[in-house]
Simulated assay, not measured.
Amino acid sequence: MFPSAAGPIGVFDSGYGGLTILKEIRAALPEYDYIYLGDNARAPYGTRSFDVVYEFTREAVKTLFERGCHLVILACNTASAKALRSIQQKDLPGWDSSRRVLGIIIPTVEALGSITKNGNIGVLGTPGTVSSGTYDIEIAKFFPQFRTVSVECPMWVPLVENREYDSPGADYFVEKYVEELFAQEPDTDTIILGCTHYPLLIDKIRRQVAGRATIITQGELVAASLREYLARHPEMDAVCTRGGNCTYLTTENPDKFTALAGTFMHTPVRAEHVTL
């Protein structure tokens, strides 16, 4: 059904945010080849239902497999929360049981034990990620003694994608959501930025948090986890090609994607259009 030859590592996101994950993965593992796929035409996923996110993510993963990927990273918290388990359990056995799809939530959660001092964890995420309860569930599995509070931040992704993350409006909404979190749990000492867009707001978030908590961005954690995964699974490492190349695909206008992607990657990007 899919090409059997070795191929690139696939990285999928509903839009641009996954580029913050790809950037750190490429910094940590520059020798590999990558395909990034952004479903920008149907973004954002954060307010969509479980069924819709699953179907959209399933189409994207299938497209990356058809382009030669044996391993796909869902560099999207909403897709990881709403679609990952279904794809792993329902689709991979019928498609090709040797291929793998991994998410970014578990690598983030696993790191908490070495970061928090008091076990009070805050999650700032999209409505879809927060309503899924995935962070609460996974944190309770790994660290049942921890307490988790979550806040939906529906305005942060639009601010980033409309390049308003340096605006006074961004200041207002950063203050609003951060203070809402501390109002729920004043002793929060670790905050997960549960959306890959949010690192573009990191300076404002840090100023608002003002040393009250450690802020976790996901890129470095996911990159380290992927390095460890490939070391533990030489059979998967063997089917990932190494040429240092990266292809960018988008379901939107490629010129629009190219213009904004450079903001995330801090380097020029050229994208191709793809239909899912």
Rank of each mutant, 00 (worst) to 15 (best):
residue 244 G to L: 07
residue 142 F to M: 13
residue 52 V to N: 09
residue 247 T to M: 11
residue 253 N to F: 04
residue 146 F to L: 05
residue 127 P to E: 10
residue 83 A to G: 04
residue 137 I to K: 15
residue 183 A to Y: 05
residue 229 Y to N: 04
residue 71 L to N: 09
residue 77 N to Y: 11
residue 161 E to I: 01
residue 141 K to W: 03
residue 38 G to K: 08
residue 240 C to G: 06
residue 112 L to I: 06
residue 209 V to M: 12
residue 141 K to Y: 12
residue 98 S to Q: 14
residue 176 K to C: 01
residue 17 G to S: 07
residue 84 L to K: 06
residue 175 E to N: 10
residue 29 L to V: 09
residue 224 A to G: 11
residue 10 G to M: 03
residue 27 A to N: 14
residue 3 P to F: 12
residue 142 F to V: 12
residue 67 R to F: 12
residue 207 R to F: 01
residue 173 F to S: 04
residue 189 D to Y: 07
residue 37 L to Y: 14
residue 13 D to T: 09
residue 20 T to Q: 04
residue 273 H to T: 12
residue 162 N to H: 15
residue 87 I to S: 10
residue 184 Q to E: 11
residue 143 F to E: 08
residue 143 F to I: 07
residue 21 I to T: 12
residue 155 M to N: 10
residue 90 K to T: 01
residue 44 P to R: 04
residue 178 V to T: 09
residue 58 R to W: 13
residue 264 F to A: 09
residue 208 Q to W: 00
residue 81 A to W: 10
residue 213 A to L: 03
residue 86 S to R: 15
residue 184 Q to P: 00
residue 27 A to I: 00
residue 70 H to S: 14
residue 185 E to D: 13
residue 258 T to F: 03
residue 215 I to T: 07
residue 210 A to W: 05
residue 99 R to G: 08
residue 258 T to S: 15
residue 276 L to D: 01
residue 177 Y to T: 00
residue 276 L to W: 13
residue 149 V to K: 14
residue 73 I to R: 08
residue 28 A to P: 00
residue 134 T to E: 14
residue 113 G to M: 11
residue 166 D to M: 07
residue 210 A to M: 04
residue 182 F to D: 04
residue 251 T to W: 10
residue 152 E to S: 15
residue 237 D to I: 00
residue 97 S to H: 10
residue 86 S to V: 00
residue 132 S to Y: 08
residue 22 L to K: 02
residue 141 K to C: 05
residue 11 V to D: 05
residue 5 A to N: 13
residue 257 F to W: 05
residue 106 I to Q: 13
residue 191 I to Y: 02
residue 139 I to H: 05
residue 227 R to V: 10
residue 203 D to H: 13
residue 103 G to R: 07
residue 162 N to K: 14
residue 160 V to G: 03
residue 93 P to H: 03
residue 167 S to C: 06
residue 110 E to S: 10
residue 73 I to E: 12
residue 221 L to W: 05
residue 70 H to A: 13
residue 107 P to K: 07
residue 243 G to C: 06
residue 103 G to E: 06
residue 210 A to H: 14
residue 135 Y to N: 08
residue 46 G to T: 12
residue 119 G to H: 11
residue 232 R to D: 14
residue 164 E to Q: 15
residue 57 T to I: 02
residue 24 E to M: 09
residue 161 E to F: 11
